Amino acid sequence: MKIILTHEVSGLGTPGDVVEVKNGYGRNYLLPQGFAMPWSKGAEKQVTVIKRARESREIRDLGQATEVRGQLENLRVGMKARAGDGGRLFGSITAAEVVEAVTAAGGPTLDRRRLEMPGAIKSLGNYQVSVKLHPEVTAKFTLDVTKSK
Rank of each mutant, 00 (worst) to 15 (best):
N74T: 12
T94N: 11
S92M: 07
G78P: 04
L89A: 10
A95P: 11
L62V: 08
G78Q: 14
T66I: 09
Q71M: 14
I93V: 15
G91E: 12
G87D: 14
A65L: 03
I93K: 08
D85Q: 14
R69W: 00
G84D: 15
D61E: 02
R69H: 00
L89Y: 10
I59T: 07
S92E: 10
S92A: 14
V77E: 09
R60Q: 06
L62A: 07
M79P: 07
G78M: 11
R60F: 01
G86P: 06
E73H: 03
T94F: 02
R88S: 13
E73I: 02
D85C: 04
E73R: 03
Q71E: 11
V68P: 01
R82D: 12
R69L: 01
A65E: 05
A65T: 05
G84C: 04
R69K: 15
A95H: 07
T94I: 05
A65R: 04
G87L: 08
Q64T: 05
A65Y: 04
R76I: 13
K80C: 06
E97I: 12
A81P: 04
L75V: 04
E73F: 00
T94P: 08
Q64R: 05
D85I: 13
D61F: 00
Q71L: 07
N74R: 11
L75H: 01
R88M: 13
V77D: 11
G84H: 10
A96E: 10
A83T: 07
G78N: 13
V77R: 06
L89H: 11
I59Y: 00
G78D: 10
L75R: 04
A95V: 03
G86C: 09
D85N: 14
R76E: 13
G87C: 12
A83D: 11
G78S: 15
T66P: 02
F90S: 11
G63W: 02
G91I: 14
A65N: 06
G87H: 14
G70F: 02
A83M: 06
E67N: 00
R82Y: 14
G70K: 03
E73D: 05
L62Q: 04
G86H: 13
T94M: 03
F90R: 10
G87S: 12
G91T: 14
A81W: 13
D85F: 06
R88E: 15
G63Q: 06
F90K: 10
F90A: 11
R69S: 06
A83R: 11
L72G: 02
E67Q: 01
F90L: 12
G91Q: 13
E97Q: 15
L72H: 04
F90N: 13
L89M: 10
A95Y: 09
K80M: 14
L72A: 02
V68S: 00
L75D: 04
R69D: 00
L89C: 13
T66K: 12
G84R: 05
V68Q: 02
T94E: 10
D61N: 08
L72P: 07
K80V: 09
L89G: 15
D85W: 08
E67I: 00
R82G: 11
V77G: 10
E97H: 12
L72E: 01
E97D: 15
I93P: 05
K80I: 09
Q71R: 12
E67V: 00
